[in-house]
């Protein structure tokens, strides 16, 4: 009986782990098509990048680190393939939504122009 319970619990954990892994992998799949296709109106603008750097320093660096490499715990690195593969629209959407369950606040309170500045900065640090 005990063995059956442990097998059942093991299967259940595996299902949860797979579901969690799947959710992470499909991070950008939740982005509505309209947002996914949006282009950053400030892409490549050096002033926007400088502004984005200041916003990053003020709001993001104490979790994600000054070098954007994350803190090894909840706040992930922002120099990853996942970020590089996302469109500008995906990133702006995610900043607006946040991920409240996992500790990432929603930045809908920032003006949209500043979210685009932040996206421009995130792009600039990927090289």
């Amino acid at each position: 009986m005990k063995r059956r319970i442990s097998v059942a619990l093991g299967c259940l954990s595996l299902v949860f782990a797979l579901a969690a892994g799947g959710a992470r992998a499909s991070h950008w799949q939740n982005v509505p098509e309209k947002d996914h296709a949006r282009a950053n109106p400030m892409a490549g603008n050096p002033r926007a990048v400088a502004g984005g750097a200041a916003i990053y320093k003020g709001h993001c660096s104490h979790c994600h680190g000054a070098d954007a490499m994350g803190n090894g715990k909840k706040a992930p690195s922002l120099k990853t393939e996942s970020i590089r593969s996302a469109t500008d629209g995906d990133l702006e959407w995610f900043l607006r939504q946040g991920d409240l369950r996992h500790g990432m606040p929603s930045w809908s309170s920032l003006p949209q122009a500043q979210r685009w500045q932040l996206v421009a900065y995130l792009r600039s640090i990927q090289q």
């Binding site: 200041a54 916003i55 320093k57 003020g58 709001h59 606040p105 929603s106 809908s108 309170s109 920032l110 003006p111």
Partner: peptide
């Protein structure tokens, strides 16, 4: 430093929570 653009309300609360 950039400061969260909190709303300047005294009585009304918005959806903004502390980071």
């Amino acid at each position: 430093f950039a400061h969260a653009q909190d709303k300047p309300y005294f009585v009304t609360y918005s959806q903004d929570l502390e980071e």
